[in-house]
Every structure is written in C-alpha cells, then in structure tokens.
C-alpha cells in the first residue's frame, strides 16, 4: 500500500510536483503515466526519501519510507537502471543487495535465473551491459528482499518485446500475490496492458486517476447503426461530439457521450442500432494525449469553456 497526500516539490519558482495525491493498492498494478518531465521520477524519489518534499506526505505500508525497518526488504525500488557503478559486476551488485537486506548469497543465483541473466553475463561489469540488461539487473535488485511493494521507474525502457512480455508476467504475478506495484512509464501501450489502476500526471499535476476500465469508459461509446449519416446528424443536433471511426467499420461512429444518451437520440431519430458499447478504439493513448494537451494548453481550454 502506497499513500501519497498533497505531495509537492518546488525548485525555486518551478513546481515539479504539484499537490499530488493518489493511492496504490495491494493486489493491483498501478501505472504512473505521463510524458517526460511530468514529475513522475521526482514523485517516486520523494516516496523513497531520496528527494525531500516541499510539502505533503507519502507513506508506504503506513509508514514514511525513512521510518521503515530494513526498507529494501519491504520496498523494492528501481529508480534508474543506469545508476550502477560501471566497474562492478552484475553478480556483485546483487550480492551487495543480498547483504543489504540480510539474505543468503545463494539468492543471487535464483534471481539471476529469474530475470534471465546468464552466469557469464552476471560476471561482466555493468559498463558492458545494454540498457535492457541493466533493467533486468535492477529488477533483480529490487526483488532481492522479497518485498511487499515494488516501485519501478520506467522499467520497460530498453527491454525488447520478449523482455516486456516477461516483465508484464512477473509484475502480474507479484500483484496477484496481494502485493503492491507502482510503475511509471511514458510507454502508453505497456501501461495499458499491464496496469489495473492508472494515475495520469502532466506538468506535475494529476490529470486523471482511477481503474483503467473507468477511465477508458469516460472516453465515449462506439455505435453501429443501419443509417450512420442520419444518426450522426441527429447526434450533432443533440450537441454531442461525433468522430468518424478510425479505419474500422464505416458504419461505426465514436460519440463523446454515454450509451444512454446515444440510445435516446437514436430512438428519437428512429435509427436501428446494431451495436452500442464503450469505445475500444479510442484507448488510453487518446485519453493520454487529450489530457496532456489540456495540461500544456490550460489557458486555451478555459477560453473554449467560457
């Protein structure tokens, strides 16, 4: 369980993280999503007592990070896969991690196997690792203490498709086991596939949060009918936003409205509907782009609203 309340970080006049509040629940993968520079990493470092917050609180397992006993055994962190001593071998990095959390060195071999680093690779110095190998090493390091909570900053960066699939399975299993996962990403497709809950952040502020299914439901419905032009005209007359379908069936429209609103308009216009459902095609990417575009053009938006 991670609880963040009103967390703020200012650097001079620049506000990197602006009154952020959210929770990451056990048993759930929470995706922390936002464009580069949105404040994800700063927020994560504040969670782990690496960056002192300007104001606000963050607790993990009901305690501040700095008050946790043997914190690395409770909270596995991977905040930057590149942040390893270039002259240390991967195996040695894990041996240090095992010592730090008080685990036998035999666990090093288990974790190397788990993250798919060979014995030979593990003896090479980190200087010669690709980013993908560093990510695997970092994940092994985070898992060393068999933690209750995982905090991973951009863990999918540099992983190949198989690697990403592997990580997805790993985190899924971790969450299914009743533990908490918070991962950040700007790779929307990855988060869409793995996260149950989403926290969207842009310019330091939370733009949206909640279960992925709910967030996606808010983006509209797709409606298929026997007379799309007439339905579209009726929907527009009713003041609703209608988008043409993206590539798929030309008889399907995407409408910024609830299923009920669309159903009523169709009833009035006497158009036969053959399908009405939450829009699949819009997806998180659209939501993400819309929300972050709003964040970067907040003034434009208020003008439009006025």
């Amino acid at each position: 369980m991670i609880r963040v309340h009103d967390l703020t970080k200012r650097y001079g006049r620049f506000t990197a993280v602006d009154a952020v509040s959210f929770e990451a629940r056990p048993g759930v993968v929470t995706g922390f999503l936002g464009p580069n520079g949105a404040g994800k990493s700063t927020a994560m470092r504040m969670l782990c007592a690496l960056t002192p917050p300007t104001s606000g609180t963050a607790t993990i397992l009901d305690r501040r990070y700095r008050d946790l006993p043997n914190p690395a055994s409770l909270v596995g962190t991977l905040l930057d896969a590149s942040a390893q001593h270039a002259g240390r071998s991967g195996r040695e990095v894990l041996t240090l991690a095992a010592t730090a959390v008080g685990r036998p060195h035999s666990r090093v071999g288990e974790l190397l196997e788990l993250v798919g680093l060979t014995d030979r690779e593990s003896r090479r110095r980190v200087r010669h690792y690709s980013l993908g190998m560093r990510q695997r090493l970092g994940i092994a390091q985070a898992l060393m203490g068999d933690p209750q909570v995982l905090i991973l900053d951009e863990p999918a960066n540099g992983l190949d498709p198989q690697g990403i699939h592997w990580m997805r399975e790993l985190l899924r299993g971790f969450a299914d086991d009743g533990r908490t996962v918070l991962l950040s990403s700007h790779l929307l497709h990855e988060v869409e596939q793995i996260a149950d809950d989403l926290v969207l952040i842009g310019r330091g502020r939370i733009l949206a949060k909640g279960p992925q299914s709910e967030l996606l439901a808010g983006t509209g419905v797709s409606v298929t009918s026997l007379d799309p032009p007439r339905l579209a005209a009726a929907l527009i007359r009713a003041g609703l936003t209608v988008r043409p379908p993206e590539g798929a069936d030309p008889r399907t429209l995407v409408v910024q409205a609830t299923a009920e609103q669309v159903g009523r308009v169709a009833l009035e216009a006497q158009v036969v509907l053959t399908d009405l459902r939450p829009s699949q095609g819009v997806g998180l990417e659209q939501l993400f782009l819309e929300l972050t575009a709003d964040a970067s053009r907040a003034t434009d938006r208020s003008e439009v609203a006025a």
Binding site: P26, D62, P69, Q148, R179
Partner: peptide, 10 residues
C-alpha cells in the same frame, strides 16, 4: 504476502 504492518526500528 499481502500487506503486513512492518515492525522494528528504522
């Protein structure tokens, strides 16, 4: 597994 309340000194 599952949350346990951590005990012990920091």
């Amino acid at each position: 597994s599952g949350d346990r309340r951590p005990v012990g000194r920091p």
